[in-house]
Design a protein around this nucleic acid. Structure first.
Lengths: 207, 207, 207, 207
DNA sequence: GATGAATGAGACTTCATTCAT
DNA sequence: TATGAATGAAGTCTCATTCAT
């Protein structure tokens, strides 16, 4: 069945291997701390080879960031914002989104390290990419809010754009915390976060 | 009246000038993008002079971060967490904290750039300092929550540590947003953020 | 016959070229006076290249010193201290040692410049290495003395350790002098030194 | 009696204090390792002041070397080379010279450190000064030898210049050793050295 | 005379990137 | 296609020396 991979396929495979290792190294040492020779050495590959697959250091970092953000974006679009017809439906949606988001981070903490920490020091372009992703997730959140308002289970006077950003901030902070401590049980920590944030969102914290 | 400043005073003044300029440059270019010669040139001084006032690049960055965090810390401790006796008292406290926090950032957007962006890529030590500061603000927030629960105007079943982190995440995100766009009216933007976040905290967003 | 050298061989060759040139430069200007860019320029190579072959400036200097000392050490061990059975045997041994030692220095005066002059100002570590080498040669000399005392052709009341040091001091001073003036006929100068020192050792200078 | 010192006297005093401290620091850290600010700080004096008393770093080092060498030179000229009329007279002279020389070094080990070690790495000019001093002491030694030959208590066939250098080499090595180890009893060590070297010179080491 | 702030030449070292093999 | 030797720009930091106060 599986024939010998073609030239293009092998190239693609190698590219993937490089990206994979680069993710590890960048997450560990940050953009400036990492160096190409290092990544190449860990792959037992000449560091000149690197430049056959990527334009330069900046290039691979950007691609890495884009891939990571892509993964995050997928989560946001898995659910349909207009599906929920009640507070209860919405609660279930939130739970789903939260879980998938969190799982992403404790399954591969490199993602969080890259996004929350190391990408910040890698220059304006990277940061803008990040911001764009953030904006995207906020847009999705706005949909959820607008749907809730339309369906009547959310307050009609919400400041949608700002509220959406605030909610996403809590979600991302949750991810950061869950990723941060590798000792604790990440599944349990995730559940605590999801519960607490949903309580804030759905119930408010005051009586 | 104002006599000529003494030697120590002039040294202190110069140190301040360097810190001031360094803040600008670091906020603009980040830790790695900035270089000492650059900072010195903008101050029209030899770059050797820099090393009369600071041990090295890392040293001044740390000092800058500490000063900035100090400013933020002051805001948190201005209010007494146990003062509020009702939902209304708490609302007023929140409003005060939020305003002061926000004002800090739109009065000097470099602070936010440093804390939210550039410090992240400056290595583990800096990041830990930041995290420590975050923890501190979270501890203060926990006090507010515990007070509210004790006084009976907050739900008794809050997950205090996690909730505190989530709330602070919204506050910091607000600061980030207010700082981000220098075009918009920052005062108005601040008010919107404070209102929206307070609505989430106090009322929840669902009916 | 001589095939093209392999990569390792070429690397080794280049390393040798660098060491060779560095020896010249260090001997000329001393440790502090020499600089890497200088050495690299004389080899018509980028100074970054240097760091592919040596850790740093200190590193290559140490290696140079060790190589030079190795050469000197070999001379001391070429003869067997216990071989001489008479004053005449010992005279022949002394002559052999002296000649080889001297030859080393007038064949390559850089060795002496490094050992006698420049290494002294290169810090404690280098100096200790030198001292260790000196100690070694003194130990060997002690063997010669002890053998002579045992065989009965040397005074029985010699202060062996001190006498050994004193003798080596004359040998080294001879090397220094022979190396110092490149104009004079070094072979003849060597012979004069060997003769004079042997006269002191074997006969004393007084009647 | 002792009136307040005049301006010139105070200047001279300060100059001496600087020289004294500089000797300590140079002996400790070597020419390149020492720095002017350091010396000034230890004298609780502005380092700009240094340049009122000395042209530059090189200048003071040269002066230091000259003073130290002067001290050594005095020892050589204390005795009259032509005074000794017999082997016994010469023995007493040698003993005197040896003792004074050694005492110099264990009374102030900085002298030896400077002359034997640190001066070597301080450039050609300093080295030439040293060599000149060495030559001087060798000239004096030659006088002793020539006197001995004239008076008939020394062999007539000595190679005077070379023998003189060889003898001085032993003397200097003795100083170096006595200075090197501050733990041992320097007086006793001195005596051992003097005895051993005199034995070599006067008796030879072979039977 | 004394000071020490300012200077900048100069040294070391790193590492992204190129290119001949 | 893969390699890794070579490169040099760039950056950090030191310290002898000058000079205004």
């Amino acid at each position: 069945m599986s024939s010998r991979p073609s030239r293009e396929e092998r190239a693609e495979l190698k590219r993937e291997r490089i990206l994979e290792e680069a993710l590890t190294v960048f997450a560990e040492k940050g953009y400036h701390g990492a160096n190409i020779a290092d990544i190449a050495r860990r792959l037992e590959m000449g560091h000149g080879t690197f430049y056959r697959y990527f334009e330069n250091k900046h290039d691979i970092f950007i691609e890495l960031i884009n891939r990571v953000l892509q993964k995050l974006a997928v989560v946001m679009t898995e659910q349909n914002p207009n599906e929920a017809n009640s507070r209860e439906d919405y609660r279930r949606q939130l739970e789903g989104i939260g879980e998938t988001f969190m799982r992403l981070h404790w399954e591969d903490p490199r993602i969080g390290r890259l996004v929350f920490y190391e990408a910040m020091g890698a220059g304006a372009e990277v940061r803008q990419t990040l911001e764009r992703m953030n904006d995207l997730s906020v847009l999705a959140t706005q949909e959820y809010l607008r749907n809730g308002m339309a369906k009547g289970y959310m307050r009609a006077d919400l400041d949608v754009p700002v509220t959406a950003r605030a909610l996403m901030a809590m979600v991302f902070e949750g991810c950061r915390q869950v990723m941060r401590e590798p000792d604790q049980n990440p599944e349990q920590a995730s559940r605590r976060w999801i519960a607490a944030v949903m309580a804030i969102i759905l119930d408010g914290i005051t009586l």
